[in-house]
Amino acid sequence: MELYQLQTFVKVALTGNLTDAALQLNISQPAASAHIKALEQITGFPLFYRNSKGMTLTERGTKLLEEAQQILFSIEEFYKKAQELRKDSAETIRIGLNTDGNLLQMDKMIRHMSERLPAVEPHFVNTRSEDFLQDVAALKINAGFYYGKVADSHIHSVKLHSCPMVVVYPNSWDVPDRELTLKDFAEKSWIWTTQGCPFHQQAMDYFLERDMVPKTIMYVDNETLIGNLVQQEMGCSLLAEPIAMQFVKENKLKVWKGIDLSVDLSFGYPKDRKRDPVMNEIVTLLQEIWKP
């Protein structure tokens, strides 16, 4: 006995017409008739009286109708439950994004995850590099991107890229025609990253090693906001080169690449998930995306 035979039996019983039942089931009338005949062979007795007005259930057919409806209902409930379980089985993973999605190549990451980890439901959360450890400990994120280094024995880190830093300054600034040096910017007003940011200490050490102390006008912890403030002539700043070049393409500011400074972009997660197949697959696809 096949499921489609029961479906046809119930539909014919409810409509009383083989043609109408076939239309509703989106099958041909001969196919519907064949389903009924096959079912009657299985049961060993007629299920319908056939006449010029249509088809009516026999007494035995009437007794089987409720059973058939109950079977179809149970199967429908089975499919619904399976769908719920499949939905519930999707693993949620929260990934922290510390900078612009274009720089992190999120379009590629999302595409690869949908292809290779279809049962994983990623949630992307805006975070800051300096808050990475805190966010992981608080379960705000399960893993994430961050700049600099994380000195914690419970975190496994994978370096993805070393981002060159550049000086960004307003288009309107009158800079010397000769080759620029860091001294040309040292006396300018600077928009500095917050003290917890990996940029901050690296950049400060870089200036101090050269006996320079930048004039700070404000602290900002958002790269896009820094770029916009530089465009508004509030000062100059340091940005990762990919971020800076986006502003350059839009003719919002200028860059000087003469500073020998870079910061590492890494992806990290708790070491107790190092054997987790989902986390391993995410790391593998990130390494493919960021390979030299």
Rank of each mutant, 00 (worst) to 15 (best):
73 F>R: 14
36 I>M: 02
66 E>G: 10
115 E>K: 03
196 G>F: 10
272 D>E: 14
139 L>P: 06
72 L>G: 08
133 L>G: 13
222 N>F: 02
56 T>W: 06
9 F>S: 00
277 P>G: 03
222 N>K: 06
145 F>A: 02
93 I>V: 14
171 N>Y: 00
249 K>V: 00
163 C>A: 11
100 D>L: 00
10 V>T: 11
250 E>W: 02
118 P>H: 01
150 V>F: 00
260 D>G: 04
178 R>M: 09
69 Q>Y: 03
168 V>H: 12
131 D>G: 00
118 P>Y: 03
14 L>K: 15
265 L>Q: 05
23 L>I: 01
137 A>R: 15
123 H>W: 06
64 L>G: 03
107 D>K: 05
250 E>A: 07
58 T>Q: 10
12 V>N: 05
60 R>E: 14
181 T>D: 10
50 R>T: 10
70 Q>T: 14
182 L>F: 11
267 F>N: 03
156 H>G: 00
50 R>Y: 12
223 E>A: 10
219 Y>F: 15
100 D>W: 11
154 H>V: 00
31 A>H: 14
236 C>E: 00
134 Q>E: 12
47 L>K: 04
169 Y>I: 05
177 D>N: 15
128 R>L: 04
20 D>Y: 00
30 P>A: 08
121 E>T: 06
287 Q>F: 09
42 I>E: 15
261 L>Y: 12
110 I>K: 04
248 V>L: 04
262 S>T: 13
245 M>S: 14
143 A>H: 10
275 R>L: 08
160 L>V: 04
51 N>T: 07
47 L>A: 03
178 R>T: 13
135 D>S: 10
213 V>E: 02
149 K>N: 10
191 I>F: 11
206 Y>C: 01
18 L>F: 00
47 L>P: 07
236 C>L: 09
116 R>A: 07
281 E>P: 05
222 N>P: 08
121 E>N: 08
47 L>W: 07
58 T>K: 09
209 E>W: 01
123 H>L: 09
261 L>N: 06
288 E>A: 07
264 D>H: 11
243 I>K: 09
203 A>N: 07
183 K>S: 14
69 Q>C: 08
226 I>K: 03
223 E>S: 11
45 F>L: 06
114 S>N: 01
135 D>N: 13
